[in-house]
Design a protein around this nucleic acid. Structure first.
Lengths: 239, 239
DNA sequence: CCAAAAGTGTTGTCGATACACCCATGT
DNA sequence: ACATGGGTGTATCGACAACACTTTTGG
C-alpha cells in the first residue's frame, strides 16, 4: 500500500510503501521542574482536526517495529538514541473511526535538556502536558496513555530506567524527587540516599552543584555497564 | 481481505474477512507431573510443513485482539475462560517468509485437568513439550517463546497467576513445586508455607488429600475476590 | 518399624522505616 | 541569623533464610 506521508524532518511530502492497518503511537515522557510530562501533538487532518493525540505514524514495509518507532521519534524530536520500550498492541475493532487499524504503543523516555521543539513540525503543534492535566485525546489514546503510565510505574521500580529522564549529571535529591513524582509517594531522604548508594550503581563524579543557595550536593552519573556487571552477579534493582 | 480458513471446532472450511498481515500466536502453558509444558502444533501447510510451531491464526475484521486469541484457544483446546495475557507485537520485516506479517504474542495458562486434545484438529497434531525440550520452531517462534517465558517468570512472582496452572483444589506443596519449576529455584517448605499463608489469600477447604501414602495434606483454593479485596487495601503479591 | 511428606518452632541476619541531628552556603 | 537543602547516626521492627524437630499415614 502506498501512502503520501510527510517527512517531519524536511517537511517535504513523500510517497512510501507502508503497512496498511497498523500504526505506532508513542507516549513520550519528560521530567521538568519536578513534574512528569508527556508530549502531545495537535492533529492536522481528518474529522478530529485540532484535537490532541499521541504522536505516531505508519510503519514502512521494510522496517522493524522498534526501528519505526525510533524513526518517528527522530522525526518529531530530532533525538536519536532514545530509551524506547514497546507496550503492547491495541486493537479494538472500533478504536479507529475509518477502517480497522491496530496500533502498537511505545513508551519513550527523554532528557528534556536535550529536547528542542522541531521547527516546521507538520503545521501542527507539539506541546508538553503535565501528567495530571492531560486533555481528552483522539481515538483510544487516553486508554493507551493510562496503560503506559501503569507500565512506567511498574518498570521504574524494577529497572534503572528513571535516569533516562534526568540530565547526565544529577543529585540524589533530584533522583528521589523523580521517583516521588512518578510513583506519587513521599520518600525519606536519608533512607533513599542509603538505599541507592548501597546498590553501588552510581558513579560519584566528585563534582558539586554550583550557584545554589544552600550547601552544594554531589553529582552522580548512572553507568549502564556497572548495572550490567551487577546484574550478571545476580543483583536486582528494586524500588 | 478474504481468506479460506479452517474452523478447528467443526473441521469445515469457511471464508472469512480477516486482517491481512497480522496474526496472533499463543504460548500455552500447562503444568503436569511437576513439569512446566507448552502446547505446540505441527504445521500442515507451506514450506515448513511438518515442523512445530506455536498455535495461532488470523484476526477477523470485526474482532478485538483478546477476543481473537480467546477464539483461537477455544478452537484448539475446547476451553473457554482461559487466563490470557498479551505479550507484545513481533514484527521484524523478515520474520515471515512470504510477505510482511506482524504477529501479536499471547501467554495462556491452562489447567491440564480440564484439557482434552481436540479430535479433528486440522489434520495436524498438537503435543505438549517440556519447557527444556522445545525443538526448533518455525519463523521467530523460538524468540517469542523465550520472551514469553521471561514474562511468565516475572509475572508469576508479582501476581497470583500461577493458580491458573493448578487444579481447583491443591496442596501447599504442589503450589511450591509449581513455583520451583517455573522459577528454576529450590525453596524451603516451612518458609514457603508461612509466607503464603500469612498473605491470607488462600481458602482453607477443610479437606484433605486421599489415598496418599503419607500424612494427608490440607487442600486450598485460590479466591480471586479475596485477592481483589486485599489489593484494594494496598496488599501486593510478591514472591 | 520405616519412608515420606505434613506441619511447627527457633534463631540470626538484614533491610526498611522513622526520626533526631549536624553541616554548608547564599541572602 | 535564618532558610534551604545536604548529609550522618541510630533504634526498632518485621521479613526471611536456615535448620532442627514433631506428627501423620501407608506399606
Amino acid at each position: 500500500m502506498k501512502k503520501t506521508l510527510i517527512n517531519h524532518e524536511s517537511g517535504e511530502l513523500i510517497e512510501a510503501r507502508v503497512m496498511s492497518s497498523i500504526t505506532i503511537d508513542c507516549v513520550i515522557f519528560g521530567f521538568e521542574a519536578g513534574s512528569l510530562e508527556i508530549l502531545l501533538v495537535k492533529h492536522g487532518q481528518g474529522i478530529r482536526k485540532g484535537e490532541w493525540g499521541l504522536p505516531g505514524g505508519w510503519i514502512k514495509e521494510q522496517e522493524g517495529l522498534d526501528e519505526a518507532a525510533h524513526r518517528l521519534l527522530r522525526e518529531l524530536t530530532g533525538l536519536d538514541n532514545i530509551y524506547l520500550e514497546q507496550l503492547k498492541a491495541f486493537g479494538e475493532p472500533d478504536r479507529f473511526p475509518v477502517g480497522r487499524v491496530i496500533t502498537i504503543g511505545y513508551n519513550a523516555l527523554i532528557k528534556r535538556e536535550d529536547y528542542n521543539v522541531k521547527a516546521g513540525f507538520t503545521a501542527s503543534e507539539a506541546k508538553w502536558y503535565k501528567i495530571n492535566e492531560i486533555p481528552d485525546l483522539i481515538y483510544d489514546h487516553n486508554e493507551i496513555l493510562e496503560y503506559s503510565l501503569k507500565r512506567l510505574r511498574r518498570r521504574v521500580r524494577k529497572a534503572p530506567i528513571g535516569f533516562n529522564l534526568l540530565p547526565e549529571k544529577f543529585t540524589l535529591l533530584q533522583l528521589m524527587q523523580l521517583y516521588e513524582e512518578i510513583l506519587g509517594v513521599e520518600m525519606d531522604k536519608p533512607n533513599f540516599r542509603r538505599k541507592i548508594l548501597r546498590m553501588k550503581l552510581l558513579v560519584d563524579l566528585n563534582e558539586k552543584q554550583k550557584d545554589v543557595s544552600h550547601r552544594a550536593a554531589k553529582l552522580y552519573r548512572f553507568d549502564d555497564n556497572i548495572y550490567k556487571r551487577l546484574t550478571e552477579k545476580g543483583f536486582s534493582f528494586e524500588f
